[in-house]
Amino acid sequence: MHHENNEGSVSSSAPRVSTSGRSVWETGQQQAARQRGNRYSRLSLEHPARMLPAIAAHAIATYTRPGDVVLDPMCGIGTTLVEAAHQDRRAVGIELEPKWASIARLNLETAAVQGATGSGEVHTGDAAEIAARLAKTALAGRVRLVITSPPYGSMTHGQVRSRRDGADTVEKTAYTYSRDRDRRAANLAYQRPQALADSFARIMAACRDLLAPDGVVVVTTRPFRKDGKLIDFPGQITQACQEAGLVQIDRCAALLCAVRDGEVVGRTSFFQLVEVRRLRKGGVPVHVVQHEDALVFTNPSTQKNKEREVRAA
């Protein structure tokens, strides 16, 4: 099953740096399980928070061309890498946790067996350190797209299943990023908000040296609630990217819900539904989040060149 973005592929004459043309990406038309189909190993389900394949596919088709290099510095089970390989791109992933890195490699092998014309590789270790090392190789200045999603909001993580003992409750599974205490300090999923933002800024700064002159960075994230309060995580990540020296050029909404005949078909996690119902009972007028914020950045030099071109025209 092939999952292209809803707008189709970018032609060879498309500009390297551009917006998607639409601020809303229709990336939730199919349920996540159907989007993944047989492209991904069942082991992928053990990851707490996987990027929706259609979001990755849309960003890749919008901001790159066949043959371009796509980098994900926190690639998890390799969703961005698999979608890039199926669109004839060269995918490079970095993953701190050996378990997820192994599954990402397995998913790339599956893509190759299924006829993907692109290629992929996965490096295991600290994202900033490996990106800095890769910047000393021939990969420096060749990455057209950095795409990633930092961990956020425990309500979006994990799976639920009925209790095996027959109790009328559910139990949560697959919600842990790492069981290694030594690596947890470096894992963004276990850092406090400010430390997480600082770590993400460090990763983005390291990735800048890998970006092509007209390269683009896409970060997907969403607001989440903690203790009933809405946390502006997209705003925190935007600030982190700006501290890394990147310039924001777009902010889009990648839908997690479907739109059919003018009606919204909701898709949300069990945990988010439970939290929303709890808050509503307490008189708080909240709603479920039905989109990811797709934050788009470029290098300052690229942005300045575009501004000069506009003034000259």
Rank of each mutant, 00 (worst) to 15 (best):
H123W: 13
I130R: 08
V146N: 04
Y152E: 10
G118W: 07
V143P: 11
E95Y: 07
S102H: 07
I147D: 04
G125I: 06
G120D: 06
I94D: 07
L134D: 05
Y152W: 15
A131Q: 04
L106C: 02
L106T: 14
A104W: 03
R105G: 11
T124K: 01
Q159I: 00
I130K: 07
A112Y: 10
P151Q: 06
E109T: 05
T156H: 13
S162P: 03
I147G: 06
V146Q: 06
R161L: 12
P151N: 12
S119Y: 02
H157M: 15
E95G: 10
T124C: 13
D126N: 13
S119N: 10
L145E: 12
D126H: 11
I130E: 04
Y152F: 15
A132I: 00
E97H: 09
V146F: 00
A140Y: 09
A127M: 06
P150E: 08
S102F: 05
I147Y: 07
G158D: 12
I94K: 00
A111Q: 02
A135P: 01
G115V: 02
R133E: 15
L145W: 09
E95P: 10
G125N: 08
T156M: 13
R144E: 14
K99M: 09
W100P: 06
R163Q: 08
A135H: 06
T156C: 01
V113G: 00
V160E: 11
Y152Q: 11
R142Q: 15
V122H: 04
R105F: 00
T117S: 14
E95F: 05
T156A: 13
A132E: 15
E129M: 01
K99V: 12
R144T: 10
A104E: 05
T110S: 12
G115R: 02
G141W: 07
R105E: 11
K99L: 14
G125C: 08
H123T: 03
R105A: 00
L106V: 13
P150M: 05
L139G: 09
I147K: 03
T124H: 04
L108G: 03
G118D: 08
R163T: 12
A132C: 14
G158K: 12
T156Y: 15
R142D: 00
K136T: 15
A116H: 06
M155K: 02
A138K: 13
Y152H: 14
L96F: 09
I130D: 06
I147M: 15
G158Y: 13
L134E: 06
L108M: 01
G115H: 05
S154H: 13
H123V: 02
L106Y: 00
A104R: 05
R163D: 09
G158R: 06
G118S: 03
T137Y: 11
G118C: 07
V146I: 14
V160A: 07
P151L: 08
T117I: 00
E121T: 14
G153S: 10
